[in-house]
């Protein structure tokens, strides 16, 4: 183990680079350059404003900074909701040619398919008077439910940047999905009213009450589902796919392609399944809406035994509706509580 040969190139370089060899002035200049560069990256220093500082007195109680108001609190900020709804609409139709029309094309196509397949192939036109209106009542509500449910479920996840950075009442997002769906549904309802009117519609008080009740049920139920699933979806994104399946099923779980009477026929043979079917709030809401729009029209035009039968609704339709509404409001309350609990961990789970 002797010394390394002095001719080794590395060794020579080291000797040349040694601190003693560089002229002191050059070394200082290099240090100055380095420090100047460093100072440039530093935050600039600004002297405080001269003069006596103003004192600011803030009125009000000390309170938690976290928005803690729930759905009710979210509704108290209409300007914010309006902005979010408008933004949501802009987002949906950015870079699309048909724009807003898309939200009508989809239900229209669905309506066309069901109208042909069930109306002609499965003979519903013969059995159900004014089958088109019967079907349309169902399409409107089912579409509204699907849109609120699936849009609401994704709403928190889509707005995660805002949720992570700003103190917003988070209920705003599912709520605005519901309002967006409403925005799409209202013209459909007007269209429905128009066609019913052409076919000889007359409004009776019981029908009007049913229609209102149906609307309230579908709103409460959709909102509750959107609220619950939007929160759960933050934790496990699997729920987005479950939602899709549920909305697919919903088309067949409400009496729109077939009259309610077809289901009622099986009430005695399968009482449990029958009760489950009727307990579905969407089915209930659809029947209530049909009672409002379709029933008065169909009653005039009905002829023959099959058509008479199809006019039948389950007993105590209105009472059932009221019970369902109470249950849906209960679900909404539960959804709000669940949302509240899950919301605490949103910023870290997104």
């Amino acid at each position: 183990m002797t010394e390394e040969p002095t001719s080794h190139p590395m060794r020579q370089e080291r000797i040349q680079e040694g601190p003693g060899r560089v002229a002191p002035s050059a070394r200082k200049a290099r240090k100055a350059r380095r420090l100047a560069a460093k100072k440039n990256n530093q935050m600039p220093v600004v002297a405080p404003v001269e003069g006596p500082a103003a004192t600011r007195v803030v009125e009000g109680e000390l309170q938690s900074p976290a928005p803690d108001s729930g759905l009710v609190g979210a509704l108290q900020r209409p300007y914010l909701i309006r902005l979010i709804v408008r933004r949501e609409l802009a987002r949906m139709y950015s870079a699309s040619i048909l724009g807003l029309l898309w939200s009508y094309v989809q239900p229209a196509i669905r309506f066309g398919v069901y109208f042909v397949v069930f109306g002609y192939l499965l003979n519903m036109h013969k059995d159900v008077p004014d089958f088109a209106i019967h079907l349309f009542c169902g399409i409107v509500f089912v579409h509204y439910f699907s849109e609120t449910f699936s849009g609401g479920t994704r709403s928190i996840w889509l707005n995660r940047r805002l949720v992570q950075k700003m103190a917003v009442p988070r209920e705003v997002f599912p709520l605005s999905s519901m309002l967006v769906a409403m925005f799409h549904t209202l013209p459909q309802l007007l269209l429905l009213a128009f066609f019913s009117f052409i076919s000889g519609w007359s409004i009776d008080p019981l029908g009007a009450a049913s229609g209102l009740l149906g609307l309230l049920i579908i709103m409460a139920f959709s909102m509750a589902m959107a609220l619950i699933f939007s929160a759960v979806n933050v934790y496990y994104r699997d729920f987005q796919n479950i939602v899709h399946t549920i909305t697919q099923f919903m088309h067949f779980l409400v009496p729109m392609m077939y009259p309610a009477h077809r289901v009622m026929q099986h009430a005695e043979a399968h009482p449990v399944i029958y009760q489950l079917y009727m307990a579905n709030p969407v089915a209930d809401a659809v029947m209530l809406l049909q009672r409002f729009f379709w029933y008065p029209v169909a009653k005039q035009n009905a002829s023959g035994k099959a058509q008479e039968l199809s006019l039948l609704f389950p007993d105590h339709l209105l009472q059932r509706g009221l019970i369902t509404l109470v249950a849906c409001l209960g679900l909404l309350w539960f959804g709000q509580r669940l949302f509240r609990r899950l919301e605490k961990k949103f910023p870290e789970r997104l």
């Binding site: 009000g60 000390l62 938690s64 987002r91 940047r161 805002l162 950075k165």
Partner: peptide
């Protein structure tokens, strides 16, 4: 618990909560 009074604004960690598509 945290208690505050009045309006709070500010920026937290790398900028504001902006929606990228807007």
């Amino acid at each position: 618990r945290v208690l505050t009074r009045g309006r709070i604004a500010g920026l937290i960690a790398k900028g504001a909560g902006f929606h990228p598509q807007l």
